[in-house]
Simulated scan of single mutants.
Amino acid sequence: MNLLLARRLTGTTGLAAAVALLLEVPLYFVYSGAPPASNVLSRLLIGVLALGCVLAFALSFRELVGQADPRHAWIGRFAGTAGPAYAVVTLVSSGLEAGAVIASDHPIDPTITVTGTYILYGAIGRMLMAMFLGSVGLAILRTSILPHWAGLLTCALALLNLAFLPSLFFGSTPAHFYAANGWGTTALMGAIFSWWLLGTSLALLRHPKPPTT
């Protein structure tokens, strides 16, 4: 795989993931109370497709870094491990939630979650996302596959994810911003990641060659 192909593949898979995630996030805010099963299953289905594209984005990014500068291929490998780890953990939590919805004939009470999923969506997901974004940001800074400011922004988003690790001490009520599965910990951080992914992917596709430094 050459550098041009790696940039296009990374940009395309990232763009597909971003579009799917941006379609999913608003579904969390449609209902103020308990959402019906159709709403939960719809957003989970879109999320599963998005996570598949995130996995492909992370693996493509690993190849992109290796092609851009073999000296820093290890950073790409780190990102190519942390990204799929995040995707797999989130897919597991989505599967547990979907199973609970399918097995129930009642709307999902937003104050109740499947045991353990709020930790997978919350603190564990935030840690893995921080590792992924941190390695992507470092790779951008070291290889110049994107402008320097993009690397700094990505590293800042990694730190923002780390700030939500202690949320597991603040209950499990989704309506609370900083709860283990609160809307800030999950939906807001997911929305920020979606916009970051969209911008990064468009930048890779608009500039088939790395910017000059």
Results as ranks from 00 to 15, higher is better:
residue 8 R to Y: 05
residue 10 T to H: 03
residue 13 T to H: 03
residue 15 L to M: 10
residue 15 L to P: 01
residue 17 A to M: 10
residue 19 V to C: 01
residue 22 L to C: 06
residue 22 L to N: 06
residue 22 L to W: 11
residue 23 L to C: 14
residue 23 L to K: 03
residue 26 P to A: 02
residue 28 Y to V: 02
residue 32 S to N: 12
residue 51 L to P: 00
residue 61 F to V: 06
residue 63 E to I: 03
residue 65 V to P: 00
residue 67 Q to S: 13
residue 70 P to Y: 04
residue 74 W to S: 13
residue 80 G to Y: 04
residue 84 P to W: 14
residue 89 V to R: 10
residue 91 L to K: 04
residue 92 V to F: 13
residue 93 S to L: 06
residue 103 A to W: 06
residue 105 D to M: 09
residue 107 P to I: 04
residue 107 P to F: 04
residue 115 T to E: 12
residue 124 I to Y: 08
residue 125 G to L: 11
residue 126 R to F: 02
residue 131 M to C: 12
residue 132 F to I: 01
residue 133 L to Q: 11
residue 134 G to T: 03
residue 140 I to M: 10
residue 143 T to I: 01
residue 148 H to K: 14
residue 148 H to G: 05
residue 149 W to G: 02
residue 150 A to K: 02
residue 151 G to K: 01
residue 151 G to A: 11
residue 155 C to M: 15
residue 157 L to Y: 00
residue 158 A to P: 02
residue 165 L to C: 02
residue 167 S to A: 15
residue 171 G to I: 12
residue 174 P to D: 07
residue 176 H to S: 08
residue 178 Y to F: 15
residue 184 G to R: 08
residue 190 G to L: 13
residue 195 W to P: 00
residue 196 W to Q: 13
residue 198 L to K: 05
residue 200 T to Y: 07
residue 203 A to K: 10
residue 204 L to W: 04
residue 209 K to A: 12
residue 213 T to S: 09
